[in-house]
Write a protein that binds this DNA or RNA. Structure first.
Lengths: 173, 173
DNA sequence: CTGTAATTTCAGTAAAGACTGAAAAGACAG
DNA sequence: CTGTCTTTTCAGTCTTTACTGAAATTACAG
């Protein structure tokens, strides 16, 4: 299995972007590879194509499955597990956002709430801190709530909403 | 300079979150520290409070200034540079999003456009790749365009928009 | 069961990223 | 200028994270 020029370019860039957003480079590359692959790949093919150890692929695939963007598919007449990724990019985006919300935003909300409470208990000593942290908490809560709203829109409406461009302003104005 | 319990908790958490999003832990901690500090701090104070080398603080502050979320403020009767961060959290969020768009989304757009073009040049060989990459490109373009729209709303309208919760659905329905 | 293929685990190692301290450069009062 | 205070740079080191390969485990056909 050899990557074409275009695929290689994409896979490398995707890996790079991943690592800038706190996602392991190899994991992002595997994801990219599966995304452009016309058919499901098995772990050996992935390892060979990306020149990484078989065991590394195994761990990375498990991670991707944990994120919910890669799944095992059976291939007729093949004993090895084969893997694909979501073909619908919007679904993929939402799944990733959900996961990051759960893993990072929600814990931050919890910590901020605790901090604001504790700061208030300290009275005047922490008045300023309480103030600042509360502002941040409001922001995070607002964004989280908004995301929940958007998330619950039926898919076509969501896409329509994002595509509506300059009409957004009119709508609100 | 010793951190209070609340501040320490917040600073540590913020550092942790930063590193999950591809931002150096120390840099995020410095940002958090400045955010809760009632008055501007100089580099030595920061270094002492967070127990990191003075030189590290220097580099990190420079990075934060590059992101546009920390600035130097002169303090009367003080020779050393003092630093603060945006007090308006919304402004802070937008500045960070702008910067990440510029650094990560825009380059990705460029690469995807190139890839789609190159794939199309290959004709049938890369038909599938062209297809997949184009879908991704559409997604990124849509999101980028949408952000541009939202970004250009006057601040109060933007906040109102994010806070509007369940009315969003009605508005679109 | 037994043997073979496939996958996972994990201790050890390699690579990447972050940090330090010493030295250089810059700023500025006298 | 000169001397002092401040900031920056960067080579070397340390820490963290990622990766490998050998061994253990699992899956399953015969």
């Amino acid at each position: 299995m050899l990557l074409t020029d275009v695929s290689r370019k994409f896979v490398l860039h995707w890996g790079e972007m991943g690592s800038r957003w706190g996602i392991n480079r190899t994991i992002a590359q595997i994801h990219a590879l599966l995304y452009v692959s016309p058919e499901p790949l098995n772990a050996d093919q992935i390892a060979e194509t990306l020149s990484v150890a078989r065991s590394n692929v195994s761990m990375s695939l498990r991670e991707l499955q944990g994120w919910g963007i890669v799944q095992v598919v059976p291939v007729l007449g093949e004993r090895k597990d084969h893997f694909t990724t979501q073909q619908d990019v919007w679904e993929m985006l939402l799944v990733v956002l959900d996961e990051r919300k759960k893993r990072e935003l929600d814990p931050t909300l919890t910590v901020l709430r605790e901090c604001v409470m504790e700061a208030r208990e300290q009275g005047d000593t922490e008045k300023h801190t309480a103030q600042r942290l509360n502002e941040l908490l409001q922001l995070v809560e607002t964004c989280g709530g908004w995301y929940g709203q958007v998330r619950s829109l039926p898919r076509p409406m969501l896409v329509r909403f994002l595509k509506m461009g300059s009409r957004l302003r009119k709508l609100l104005g």
